[in-house]
Amino acid sequence: MIALWHRLADRLAHREPATPLALFRIALGLSILYTLLPMIAADVVAMVWMDRPYGGYRELSPDHWLVAALGGPTDAAVTILVGLGVVSALLLLVGLGSRVTPLVANQVMTALFALNPESGGGHDRLLTAGLWLLVLAPATATLSLDARLFGPDKRFVSSQPVAAWPRYLVIFQLVVVYFTTGVQKLGQDWMPWGGWSALYYALLAPSWQRYDTTWVATIYPLTQLATAITWLWEVGAPLWLLAFWYRATRDRPGRLRALSNRVDLRAVMAAIGLFFHACLWLTMNLGPFSLVTGSFYLCLWHHDEYAAAWRRLRDKLFRTDSVRI
């Protein structure tokens, strides 16, 4: 047990370049903008987040300290919070403000989502949970103005190593979300005896439809297959952890380990997830759900893999340019 603890402590002391965390930071900044800007454009900020005297549809009684400090859900307080949300999102995008920026974003978005919980979704808390992980992570160590202005290399892109454990926590959070969502899909429509009909009925229900979807009746067997895969894939999310374990211990023997590393189980799982998120985005209006969740995928890959992919892309573009010349 003591040996295991020492191995865990050593693993968590590991350092690596911050590229995945920086991409995660940028994606969460975009997610905040995708949350707030459509609300402003559709003119629903007052309707949903302000108290009745200020244009809201109901009396609100949020218990977040920041809302209380600003005097309650008034027009001025909510305008300040939304403004701070937009500014902090832009700072996350350009990477300015180190850990203070995600801390402000985390508290502002938590306050906004606390205003009227009945108008929220599960992705709200995934966004704020992700922002908290950015508070723990030095995510402006690269791809940021912080790195350009204050970093040791004074360059926008830097390979300075930072703590790797925040990236592990992002991956763990992703696995927890999918696994617990999967095991709580207990409605019989998700089960074989319910005909695996959940996605068929979910697409027909009016709440989240992007457009008329009565055509799903013509592809019912496909929706059944998608339902079964979705459920199995979500419940199987811990396979990601297994895939990472196999990658970290690739020198050890074992056919399953070798197979997992050969096919890159981690990437296969990610590809299935991203495919279903794309399908969801095309057929249902779930706001920033897919973008927020997809942000967490960015931490599935190590800096070296991003660097290699970038080199390949650059070489390919360069070769194309040479041919044109």
Partner: peptide, 20 residues
């Protein structure tokens, strides 16, 4: 405090008698 208090219950049951 950290905005992480979500339990991930999403689309657990599907509404087969929704109202418009």
């Amino acid at each position: 405090l950290t905005g992480s208090e979500q339990g991930w219950r999403m689309f657990g049951t599907v509404n087969r008698r929704p109202a418009w």
